[in-house]
C-alpha cells in the first residue's frame, strides 16, 4: 500500500542474532518486531523504511523472561502480553505487570514487544516509567570487526528526545535487565487518559522504593508524557529519600513534582492539566504506599 514500501529491497528473517547484527551493520535496516508503532509511522509517511526490512521475531534467544537469578532479564521480542501474564514478574516486579495491564488494547499487547516500545522512545511509552523505577538497563548489540559486541546503557540515559535514543542505527536492543528488587521494595504505576481502554498516557507516574520503618530509601520516581523523554523525577526523589512517609513529606513531594515536569500543550492535554495530574498521581501513589 504505502509508497515508502518501495524503498525496501530486501526482507530478512534470520534465526541467529549474529546474522541479524551483520544484516544491520551498515545501519541501513528497519527492524521489525510487533510493528504496532512501526506500521502506523511508515504508513503515514512519518518514518521512511530503509532498504532492508529485518524481522527479528524468529531470532533464537531474543525473547522470554529469565527471572531465576539476581538479575532479571527480559528479551527484546517479549510481548507486552507475555509480561502481563508472567507469574514470575508479578512476584518480582508487579509495577511492570501493572503497567502492562494498562497498555493499549489486548490486540496491541499481543503484538507489541518490550524492545519496540523502548526503541520507539515515545515520551508516553508505558513500559518506560516502571523500568526506570526498577533501575533497568538495556543491552545494545552490534557487529563490528567480525564479532558481536554488546554494551549496557542505563535506561535513564537511553532516551534523548521524542522518538530518539542513544541506540545507533547499527545497534539492536536485545534485552532489558534489572537487579532483583530487594526485600521491602514497593512499586506503583498510575496513568491517565480521557478513556480507560486503548489509551495513550496523558501523564504517567511510577514509584519504586524500599520501605522500612515508615521511611523511604533508594527512591526512584519516573514520569511519562511530561517532557520530551520519560524521565526520573529527581526533585520528587530528593523530597522523599530517607524521609518518614507522612503528610508533610507527601506534600513536599507533590510540590517538588512541579520542578520535574515540563509538560507541553498538545492534542491530548494542556500543560496545565499535565502538571495538575502529575501532582495528583504523585500524591496518589504515595498515599497508597502509606496506606499499605
Amino acid at each position: 500500500m504505502s509508497e515508502t514500501m518501495e524503498a525496501i529491497t530486501t526482507y530478512l528473517a534470520p534465526r541467529r542474532l549474529d546474522e541479524a547484527l551483520q544484516a544491520m551493520a551498515d545501519g541501513d535496516a528497519t527492524v521489525f518486531c510487533g510493528g504496532t508503532d512501526l506500521a502506523p509511522q511508515t504508513e503515514s509517511g512519518a518514518r521512511p523504511y530503509k532498504s532492508r526490512l529485518l524481522n527479528i521475531n524468529r531470532i533464537e534467544g531474543l525473547g522470554g523472561i529469565a527471572a531465576d537469578g539476581g538479575e532479571i532479564r527480559i528479551g527484546a521480542t517479549t510481548t507486552v502480553a507475555e509480561i502481563r501474564r508472567s507469574a514470575a514478574l508479578a512476584e518480582i516486579a508487579p509495577v511492570l505487570v501493572e503497567a502492562a495491564e494498562h497498555f493499549a488494547s489486548e490486540q496491541i499487547r499481543n503484538a507489541a514487544s518490550l524492545g519496540g516500545n523502548l526503541c520507539n522512545a515515545s515520551p508516553a511509552g508505558d513500559m518506560s516509567p516502571p523500568l526506570l523505577v526498577l533501575g533497568a538497563s538495556v543491552e545494545l548489540a552490534c557487529w563490528r570487526d567480525g564479532a558481536a559486541h554488546t554494551r549496557r546503557v542505563p535506561l535513564e540515559q537511553f532516551f534523548v528526545g521524542p522518538g530518539k535514543s542513544v541506540k545507533r542505527p547499527e545497534e539492536l536492543l536485545t534485552a532489558v535487565v534489572f537487579a532483583r528488587p530487594a526485600p521491602g521494595f514497593v512499586g506503583r504505576f498510575r496513568k491517565s487518559g480521557p478513556r480507560p481502554a486503548l489509551e495513550i498516557s496523558t501523564v504517567s507516574v511510577a514509584l519504586g522504593a524500599r520501605v522500612a520503618d515508615g521511611r523511604l530509601s533508594e527512591v526512584r520516581v519516573a514520569m511519562g508524557s511530561v517532557a520530551p523523554t520519560p524521565l526520573r523525577a529527581r526533585h520528587v526523589e530528593a523530597a522523599l529519600e530517607g524521609q518518614p512517609l507522612d503528610a508533610t513529606t507527601i506534600a513536599a513531594a507533590v510540590a517538588a513534582a512541579a520542578e520535574d515536569a515540563q509538560p507541553i500543550d498538545d492534542v491530548r492535554a494542556s500543560a496545565w492539566y499535565r502538571s495538575h495530574l502529575v501532582k495528583v498521581f504523585v500524591e496518589e501513589v504515595l498515599d497508597d504506599v502509606r496506606g499499605n
Partner: peptide
Amino acid sequence: LKNACFRDYKLITAPE
C-alpha cells in the same frame, strides 16, 4: 484538523 485518527479522536469503546 489536528486529531485525524482514532488514537487521538476518542470514541466510546465497549469497556466504557
